[in-house]
């Protein structure tokens, strides 16, 4: 798959295809992280995060392919790992000025936004399985409420709709709590 095809696949919600192709970049990134005080598991997390950032950039429509996707993922991973090292209180800055200069998308890349989004994602795990499934089906699989009602065994479309908002309400409450906790640190 070419880079353009991968981007098209992400736009068309064919992440399985796109990610499958992108994983060939993983070994290089793993190597970079392991040689910078990281574990295998850190590398997995960081790479996943980089994939998600790529997705959100492509879907926001502000992604311009200026470098190879492999390079993009590598730079983002480096950036993320650097941030994580800082968070863990280590003071070895692995970013060079060249890094920052070469890929301007990194400088635009707001770490604060990233942390916010991560917290919102974490909120999903505070919900029950059914709530999570319901929200995912509706918002990311674009399933109709009627179909969801059938799939998940709700009496009616209306029940599903009500349930959806109740889940959302719960999620909002939990997210707010998580945010308060975060900022009081």
């Amino acid at each position: 798959m070419t880079d353009l095809e991968i981007i098209e696949a992400i736009k068309n919600k064919r992440n399985d295809k796109a990610f499958g192709a992108l994983y060939k970049n993983f070994p290089a990134i793993r190597k970079m992280i392991i040689s910078n005080n990281g574990l295998k598991e850190d590398a997995e997390d960081i790479f996943q995060e980089a994939l998600i950032i790529l997705c959100s950039k492509v879907n926001q429509g502000d992604f311009k392919l200026t470098a190879q996707l492999g390079t993009f993922l590598y730079s983002v991973s480096r950036f993320l790992w650097n941030d994580e090292l800082k968070r863990r209180g280590r003071r070895n800055d692995i970013l060079t000025e060249v890094d920052l200069f070469e890929n301007s998308s990194l400088t635009e890349f707001a770490m604060e936004e990233e942390h916010k989004a991560k917290l919102a994602e974490k909120t999903m795990d505070t919900l029950g399985e059914r709530c999570k499934e319901l929200l995912l089906l509706f918002y990311t699989k674009s399933m109709k409420l009627q179909e969801i009602a059938i799939k998940m065994g709700y009496n009616s479309e209306n029940t599903a709709k009500n349930q959806k908002y109740k889940c959302l309400e719960m999620a909002k409450k939990n997210l707010k709590e998580l945010q308060l906790k975060q900022y009081s640190k």
């Binding site: 990610f19 994983y23 996943q48 998600i52 916010k116 989004a117 999570k132 995912l136 918002y139 959302l168």
Partner: peptide, 23 residues
């Protein structure tokens, strides 16, 4: 704002599942 963030979170959650599967 909260709801906006949540929408992002839901979307990320789906991407995460894809990424885990790919891994």
């Amino acid at each position: 704002e909260l709801q906006k963030q949540l929408m992002k979170g839901i979307q990320r959650s789906a991407w995460r599942q894809d990424a885990v599967q790919a891994f």
